[in-house]
Design a protein around this nucleic acid. Structure first.
Lengths: 191, 191
DNA sequence: GTCTATAATCAGATAGAC
DNA sequence: GTCTATCTGATTATAGAC
């Protein structure tokens, strides 16, 4: 049995609100109300509205990095590894489109210190994709002119899902992730 | 010689502010101040903050649709046409990253009526890309399993530029647009 | 750990002088 | 068409009772 603390209820309420209205468009009253609490209760469990955003953002980044890191380690075959990485990264963004929207679009709303901390996760995600492409080129299996640019473009496919994806739409998360994985292989495979 | 009206100065100020702080995070006082005017002056030339957003959004959509429509008409060769469409669409998003950010990320902040009007432009953009892919498949030059999905993914590459692109960075708009065009051809070409 | 009440500030929009 | 001054209501965050 899972016990949800008041602190966690507020985080879940913040995720809903930030994803729907944006950070600046969300009031602490809205967060409290979604969690079934009074406006003052927010400040018992969290320091500020920005610290709620940081909590959501850092956990989201950690989770996305974890997903792509595991996929990178899932195979040594460059094609299979690339397919896994793109599939899992896109699937994560579809399955977590609300958190993903906050992670991507409210990055600028973080304080300078918090933004710097989150930035290290972003660089790790990019480096993981770049390393996988570079290794595939070294093995002679992939043909990629611009490794950093192509890595970024592959990640873009997944990231851009958070702009519009909603569960229950005409395409499933799995369909989209599979499509992206197929496109990725065509983009990078040596012919 | 070009005369800039007060109305246009306010629109330019709104573009700066909305792109930097988001619609909800921007105050009408900020817009007025950037235009070198008093808070009240905003309402002499525009009905509301939302109507300023609508003006920016509709013009941005019109411009982006225009760019991709012209590119679609620039060639009948499916490969050259695809290259032009992706290059021009991505170039537009890099060269107009501030307007593009507003177009993409503040779509939900429009009133219901205004959002419906803008939505027709979005559908036209998607249809233009889908038609180009479908025609290339018919001609036997392209090989695309999922035409709507691939069309959307190609547009995503350009759209996602607005999330991070700033002029003067390590990559030029032209470099990024060329990269996207190359990747697009690899994604869709029959082998 | 929850609440009600409130402080202090700031928001969008308007009135009316010049 | 511009300004200063202001209305009305909302906002983040805190104080203090229970």
């Amino acid at each position: 049995m899972t016990t949800i603390t008041a602190r966690e209820r507020l985080i879940n309420a913040a995720i809903e609100a930030f994803a729907e209205k944006g950070f600046a468009g969300t009031t602490t009253r809205d967060i409290a109300s979604r969690a079934g609490m009074s406006p003052a209760a927010v400040y018992v469990h969290h320091d500020s509205k920005e610290s709620l955003l940081f909590t959501v953002s850092i956990e989201g980044h950690r989770s996305a990095l974890d997903v792509i890191t595991r996929a990178a380690a899932s195979s040594t075959d460059p094609i299979e590894r690339l397919r896994s990485m793109v599939y899992d990264f896109s699937l994560w963004h579809a399955d977590n489109s609300r958190v993903g929207r906050i992670v991507q679009y409210e990055y600028h709303a973080l304080s300078d210190e918090h933004r710097a901390e989150v930035a290290t996760y972003r660089r790790s995600i990019e480096k993981t994709m770049q390393d996988a492409l570079a290794d595939g080129v070294d093995q002679g299996v992939l043909d990629v002119d611009d490794v950093p640019g192509t890595a970024f473009s592959l990640l873009s496919l997944g990231v851009d899902l958070v702009r519009w994806f909603e569960p229950g739409g005409s395409r499933s998360a799995d369909q989209l992730a599979s499509l992206h994985a197929d496109l990725a292989v065509r983009m990078a495979r040596r012919t």
